[in-house]
Amino acid sequence: MKTAKISIVGFGSIGAGLATEIAKKKDFLKIKGYDLKVVTIVDVDGAEIDEDGLNIKSIIEKKERGEDFSYDKSALDLIGEIDQDILVECTPSNIRNGNPGLNHILTSLKNRVNVVTSNKGPLVVAYKRIMETAKKNNVSIGYEATVGGAIPLINLVKGNLRADEIVAIKGILNGTCNYILTKMHAEKRDYEEILLEAKELGIAETDASYDVEGIDTASKLVILANSLMGMDVKYEDVEVEGVTRITPESLDLADELGCTIKLIGEVEREGKRLKVSPKLVPYDHPLSVGGTLNIVLIKTDVAGEVTISGKGAGPKETSSALLSDILNIVDERC
């Protein structure tokens, strides 16, 4: 049995979702030979600590009751203090300076604690620095959950496709935009109306600008370009246009051509071209998927085109990617 002590930093929907899945799958994971113990949970409200493994259910109930956590400690306080194998960083993304996530990740790596994260900001801002710090301290970092939710994209390329060179990546990387465009097309309704509905359903954030203006897709492109294509690019290198100007009439005009409109993120190694923009996608094209689905088409020198699709967001789906990284690290390091 391989045992790993895990800390979860950031106990919002993603952090709580992961903790729930770890608790729910405890027996299944034991059958597979893994014993995962969540030893600390840290949030802005404080921390919960138990080196023998926390009772996740009671902590979630406590959080729901609005009660403070038991210890007035921050993530940075606990990194050197508590014995842990993997720190899971799930704080909200900040693509301007990467913090607080970047600080958590770097401190953790410097203290020889492996990291798994769903937080895009630190990787967009400081991919190279994070990788160098991990290498220097002989620890691992997993970031599958930063792009495409449940889709095992990064691990697929780094694993099964590791002999291939990635020439281009193109896809739908934001479920909120895909939902809005799919609904606008099907129901011939205005962007504003559908956005409001998406907010009510919890598919779009109250401030949806990050999604609808293409910022989220652009951030994911930067991570893919740097980590899978050996590029050295910044957010500013991406040409970005979102979906805010798409009209029901433009979708009608597309429909008459046998197409729909999708927000497509694309990166091409040649010419260092990174672009996020609405595109005409024929109904029979591999990228024509609806609802909140994400899809990615990877173009390689040997395999040619490989397409992979799945749910791009949601706490449960993101937990699948986080758990996959956690188990990879346990196999490798614990």
Binding site: R245, T247, P248, E249, D252, L253, E256, L257
Partner: peptide, 15 residues
């Protein structure tokens, strides 16, 4: 060229 105009003040679309 095909032009679709919704209402006067809104943006129009053309193929």
């Amino acid at each position: 060229l095909e032009l679709k105009m919704p209402q006067k003040k809104k943006e129009s679309s053309a193929r």
